[in-house]
Amino acid sequence: MVAPRDNWVVDGLGATHEFDRLHAVEHRHHHDGGGGELHARGRTIRDVADVLCAAPLDPRIVAAIRACHALGCDLRILSDANRFFIDAVLDHHGLRGYFSEVTTSLSRVDADGRLRIAPYHDFHAGTHGCCLGTCPRNMCKGQALDRIRASTAAATGGKKQRLIYLGDGRGDYCPSLRLEREDLMMPRKGFPVWNLI
């Protein structure tokens, strides 16, 4: 499943110009607290959720998720978005219970109604150490995939599990290089990871 990027929300709330200015002037990333800027512009957490729910999702994707789950596939989400965004989309499409794990940046709504996002890898404390240059600074999906694979192996007593990885962004290139011989990578044609591969 493709989670909507921060840009979808920023664009949908009419704040693109302001976020571009902040990014250029202050070298900020949307994970640096974009919820504060949206809140200051009078946008509520409900506005953010409404934009997320308006993100186009092909009905065939929903059908594929349900079919894979019915076949017993262990579905997981690995995303450099954030938990609020992902949960909003999953809830909107009735899919939250189909995924055994969501690995992403943490998020919470504070007492003032602002969305606060904490990166998966705390880039304020230092880099996550990935040297490929394709991972966003808030998450090395390759390192996250290694953790998922290790926890899966521990839960199954070391039994090998075949991984089928679907991705579209530059950040999906790193984990694609960590897949094993029996695994599959399904890049989205015409998107950054397709071009990198």
Rank of each mutant, 00 (worst) to 15 (best):
W8E: 14
V10F: 15
V10E: 14
L13I: 06
A15P: 00
H17M: 13
E18C: 02
F19Q: 11
V25N: 07
E26I: 10
R28W: 11
H30D: 15
H30P: 01
H31P: 00
D32A: 12
G34L: 03
G34M: 14
A40F: 13
T44R: 09
I45L: 12
R46E: 14
R46A: 14
D47N: 12
V48M: 04
A54W: 15
R60Y: 04
V62R: 04
I65C: 01
A70Y: 06
C73H: 09
L78A: 06
L78F: 02
D80R: 07
I86W: 00
I86H: 03
D87Q: 11
D91W: 05
H93V: 12
V109P: 00
R114C: 15
L115T: 07
L115V: 12
R116A: 15
H121V: 04
A125Y: 05
H128V: 03
G129D: 07
T134A: 15
C135V: 08
K141G: 00
R147K: 15
A155F: 05
G158H: 08
L163P: 01
Y165S: 10
G171P: 05
G171H: 05
D172Q: 07
P175Y: 07
L177P: 00
L177K: 14
R178M: 07
L179Y: 01
D183S: 11
L184A: 08
L196H: 09
L196S: 10
L196V: 14
I197T: 12
